[in-house]
Nucleic acid binder design. Structure first.
Length: 179
DNA sequence: CCCTGATTCGC
DNA sequence: GCGAATCAGG
């Protein structure tokens, strides 16, 4: 089926405006709208005169320590310190938890919070984990969507499941040679 | 390397 | 007007 691209219809432009204004990146918008590349989005954005809009991620957040010192904090790691918080918050590592049973897998670590990055096939992008989540026949079907290992279709977690070692090779490969 | 937006320029 | 290619920066 040939899916003709509607081009920039009013609706699509409207969506573009909204998403761009919402702070989404061009690539995200491109995926969201579909049928267009991020370049197309950027190009359109410029033509519409939307470019150069204020970036929501302006100034880095500032945090005040209990001793009164002001520290600059990167946005993504910005932390709102509690007035009575004595210790710096522990570093939280986000680990996508598998939502499926792993029969042959020891499952070394208990599941963490559900950091679901699940995406539909529409949002599935290259370098995104293509591990299927749920019933493929269901409309709720999603892909993992987490950051895939470069060169592989899966993220770290799923790659481990997908590429389980057939057997442990304890064979010592000594290149007993000369030299 | 991954990503971001900006610009150019042939179509 | 459109967007791929390219550029420039983080």
């Amino acid at each position: 089926m040939t899916e003709a691209v509607p081009s920039w219809t009013d609706e699509r432009v409207e969506l573009l405006r909204r998403l761009w204004d919402d702070g989404l990146s061009a690539s995200q918008i491109a995926l969201q709208i579909g049928g267009v590349s991020r370049n197309a989005v950027i190009g359109k954005v410029h033509r519409l005169g939307l470019a150069g809009r204020v970036k929501p991620i302006g100034p880095a957040a500032q945090g005040r320590r209990k001793d009164g010192a002001i520290v600059e904090i990167e946005m993504e790691t910005a932390i709102v310190e509690e007035p009575t918080l004595p210790e710096p918050p522990a570093i939280v590592a986000h680990r996508p938890a598998p939502d499926f049973p792993l029969p042959p897998t020891p499952a070394p670590e208990p599941v963490a919070l559900a950091v679901s990055e699940r995406v539909t096939i529409m949002d599935l992008r290259d370098s995104m984990c293509r591990w299927p989540m749920g019933d493929p026949t269901s409309p709720e079907f999603r892909f993992c969507g987490a950051r895939a290992i470069t060169g592989l279709p899966y993220c770290t977690q799923h790659a481990q499941v997908a590429y389980q070692p057939a057997a442990e090779r304890k064979r010592d490969r000594r290149v007993a040679g000369f030299r």
